[in-house]
């Protein structure tokens, strides 16, 4: 029988891996951003379960910092995609090859 910590860390790593697969395969910019949030969520789960099993609140403090950074990142990236959509009418990542020679 697996312990609670093993279960939670395994679940966190599984969510992270799902996020990586989505980030590599989906070409819609907004869905790629959602996969980024999934990855951060998996890391949060690992941090909280380690924090519980070490018996201190360091992991939980790091989770709060991660949530703040994720909020800033989501707001900036979403406004970036809105202005890209205004310019070109698309958020497909394959449509943006401006820097390709």
């Amino acid at each position: 029988m697996i312990s609670e910590l093993q279960f939670l860390v395994g679940l966190g790593l599984a969510i992270f891996s799902v996020g990586v697969v989505g980030f590599l395969t989906r070409r819609n910019g907004l869905i790629a951003l959602m996969c980024l949030e999934l990855m951060l969520n998996g890391v949060n789960l690992c941090l909280v379960s380690f924090s519980r099993h070490h018996g201190n609140a360091e992991g939980s403090a790091l989770v709060l910092l991660i949530v703040l950074v994720a909020a800033a990142e989501a707001a900036l990236a979403l406004s970036l995609f809105v202005s890209l959509y205004r310019q070109s009418g698309s958020v497909e990542l394959d449509d943006f090859r401006l820097l390709k020679g």
């Binding site: 029988m1 312990s3 279960f7 799902v18 996020g19 697969v21 989505g22």
Partner: peptide, 23 residues
């Protein structure tokens, strides 16, 4: 050792299924 409860198994399955639905 503390083993995961039924509620945690259920929540874990729901979380993973919804994460798969995202991608």
């Amino acid at each position: 050792t503390v083993s995961p409860t039924f509620l945690q198994w259920l929540l874990g399955a729901v979380t993973l299924a919804l994460a798969l639905l995202v991608i």
